[in-house]
């Protein structure tokens, strides 16, 4: 019974994906046709939009390859397992440090982080370390940070990290300690 339901929702998701793909392709090809026709008949707004598109694309392409090469190098050289091994074993300041390092290697959004947080919790990591880890995944994932610095400048990134990281650690410790006192438990989710 359960298996069947899973299959159905899988199928639904596939059709949904297919439709969003069709809409995307239709939209982009419609856009391309519009630009070409605009150029042929000399329609000014269309021409201007194509200038926009061209200059934005050029700006993006100047940065994109470098950013992704750096991300690739990072993924090859920093092994997630190595960080995970140290996590939880170390206590005190080192625990937080490894928490932040582990966070740096995460790929994906917040929804990926919740299950990991639970598994860390069930392995006996401290609540404050777990909250630090969660906060850090949001603010200092290395691939994201590389991307940010590439497009917004290093100064922007450094300010953001220097301000947000200490604040995240302090609030995580406060929240963690408060909840530990109240015998709080992280649930398994659904």
């Amino acid at each position: 019974m359960k298996k069947n339901r899973g299959k159905n929702s899988q199928g639904e998701r596939d059709t949904k994906k297919k439709w969003s793909k069709i809409i995307k392709i239709a939209g982009i090809s419609g856009y391309a046709v519009f630009l070409i026709v605009s150029w042929m008949v000399g329609f000014e707004p269309g021409k201007e939009i194509s200038y926009n598109f061209g200059s934005f694309s050029l700006d993006m392409l100047k940065v994109l390859p470098c950013a992704f090469i750096l991300i690739g190098l990072f993924e090859v050289w920093v092994k997630k397992e190595m960080v995970e091994r140290h996590f939880g074993e170390e206590s005190g300041v080192k625990g937080y440090l490894w928490g932040i390092l582990l966070a740096g290697t995460v790929v994906g959004g917040l929804y990926v982080v919740f299950p990991v947080a639970y598994s860390l919790y069930s392995k006996g990591a401290k609540l404050s370390v777990i909250f630090t880890y969660m906060g850090a995944t949001a603010i200092c994932r290395i691939p994201m940070t590389i991307f940010e610095a590439s497009y917004m400048g290093l100064k922007f990134t450094i300010i953001r990290l220097c301000v947000s990281l200490p604040l995240v650690i302090v609030t995580s410790v406060l929240l963690g300690n408060y909840l530990t006192k109240r015998n709080y438990e992280i649930m398994k989710g659904k």
Binding site: L64, P65, F68, I69, I71, G72, L73, E75, V76, W77
Partner: peptide, 14 residues
């Protein structure tokens, strides 16, 4: 070898 792999990852991501 690792560098080659890094470029592969980069290409996949792009």
């Amino acid at each position: 070898e690792k560098t080659r792999k890094a470029f592969e990852i980069a290409r996949e991501r792009v």
